[in-house]
Nucleic acid binder design. Structure first.
Lengths: 110, 110
DNA sequence: TGCATTCATTGTAATATTGCAATTAAACAA
DNA sequence: TTGTTTAATTGCAATATTACAATGAATGCA
């Protein structure tokens, strides 16, 4: 179907999956890494830096923005993008809970 | 294209994306959570627990196994699955580095 | 106004993902 | 051996994702 049956999962499970999917493409990983590195930059810089076509970068930026992980502000004919620290922290907390499940985990079985 | 241009990204970026994609579906999140909860269980238990058809669960298990996050051992007609603690820890370390980029990050711009 | 720059949007092609029915394979039990 | 149970595999339909050319929208500049 190509369509996940989200209705049979908990909100938490769906939220984890949605965030994880955002990091499920190397271009979005690269965008975030570059934004952390330079603090803020313009869409065109990301196009040069990453090497995908401008519409493709724009599409990836749209997804990250939709999830609230980045924000953009218009500056003349450019748009300046940067990480949304507050939402990044919230996302981190959710993912950390998921990843740290192994803390109280006994040991492998098979 | 539906095909990511992995060759233009670093190994690290691709590795992060591949792991993240594994968590990008709520069924795989649910499978891992259940395995952590009960320590180990059989495929059929996951089918009952999660509520997707057996072939679908089997397919998700295959992906998690391919990434090394879980392992399975045949026990009669059943297959017992559990988390691979060692690889889980390795994955966590990689993802932690990615998520903790914000540690030395100044502040938002726009 | 007219033109250039920058980015978003639209449309489209190629590929990937998800889900399941049907089937197969393997192990066990009688 | 025959039947049962369990899980993997196959095949397929529906949808999602990725990438980009072409275009559009907005701003700034001459």
């Amino acid at each position: 179907m190509g369509l996940a049956k989200t209705e049979i999962f908990s909100d938490e499970q769906n939220e984890i999956a949605v965030f994880a999917k955002a990091f499920g493409h190397p271009a979005r990983v690269a965008i975030l890494q570059h934004l952390f590195k330079v603090n803020a930059c313009v869409c065109g810089d990301l196009v040069d830096e990453i090497g995908l076509a401008q519409p493709t970068i724009s599409q990836h930026l749209k997804e990250l923005k939709y999830l609230g992980l980045i924000k953009g502000s218009v500056e003349g004919t450019s748009v300046c993008y940067c990480v949304d620290s507050e939402n990044w922290a919230k996302m981190k907390a959710i993912m950390k809970t998921f990843f740290d499940q192994d803390i109280s985990f006994q040991e492998d079985c098979c």
